[in-house]
Amino acid sequence: MAHDNHHYSHRTGWLRAAVLGANDGIVSTASLIIGVASAHTSADEIILAGVAGVVAGAMSMAAGEYVSVSSQSDTEKADVALEQFHLDQDIDFELQELTDIYIKRGLQPELAAQVAHELMAHDALGAHLRDELGLHERIHARPVQAALASGGMFTMGAAMPLAAAIAASATQIIPVVAITSLISLASLGALAAYLGRASLITGAARVVFWGVLAMGVTALTGMLFGSVA
């Protein structure tokens, strides 16, 4: 049997943003359309609300993702600068600090000191960022990548319920949008689970559950406010 040495942690940054964006696009747009439709509004008003929701949601997701990941990136950069300052000020203390880390991980003191010395001679800053702070080049924060992935995937996800609403007759918008959205959510959950090497059933079930809950609550809200109006 061939040894599979392919790992998947490097996908976490863009995969999280992409799944979040697509899921939010499907759920929020479908919920908005169903909520408005439940208030007995016209088909044109329903479509207009859906289009406005897609545009606003995509921009909000991209901006929010950029700001939040930028904050993470700023924190990482501050840690890098602080660690470089410590190395410049007291290299011996930093060497002992790295040695202690390796001892705690199970190496004998002599071997830990040797490993720390060799790694710091090769790349002192990189060794401390990796082994002291847990910062890795492949998974550090990328604000622009996260914003594009989140905003783009929101739009792609939102296109499913919006297209269903446009294609459905005025009297069938709610069931058509609900069914289309649940199928889309199940597919998204299964795909995300596959890419992350998790259970496809679990991945599909959890997004479908929250989708049903969101659409149910907004439908009830639409009916209540529609009856009052």
Results as ranks from 00 to 15, higher is better:
H3L: 13
N5E: 12
Y8V: 14
R11Y: 15
T12C: 02
W14Q: 12
A17Q: 03
A17W: 11
N23F: 08
I26W: 04
V27G: 00
S28L: 07
S31P: 04
I34S: 03
A37N: 06
T41P: 02
D44F: 00
I47S: 08
V51H: 01
M59I: 14
S60K: 12
G64L: 11
E65H: 04
E76V: 01
A78P: 01
E83F: 05
I91Y: 03
D92G: 11
D92W: 09
E94V: 08
D100K: 02
K104L: 04
A116G: 08
H117Y: 09
L119Y: 03
A127E: 02
A127I: 03
L129R: 04
E132S: 06
L133G: 03
H136G: 01
E137Y: 12
R142G: 05
R142S: 05
P143K: 01
G151H: 10
G151A: 14
M153W: 13
M153S: 15
T155Y: 04
A158H: 03
A159C: 08
A159H: 07
P161Q: 14
A167I: 14
A168K: 01
A170D: 11
I174E: 05
P175Y: 10
G189S: 04
A190W: 09
L195G: 09
L195Q: 13
S199F: 06
T202I: 12
G203M: 03
F209Q: 08
A214E: 02
V217G: 14
V228A: 15
A229F: 15
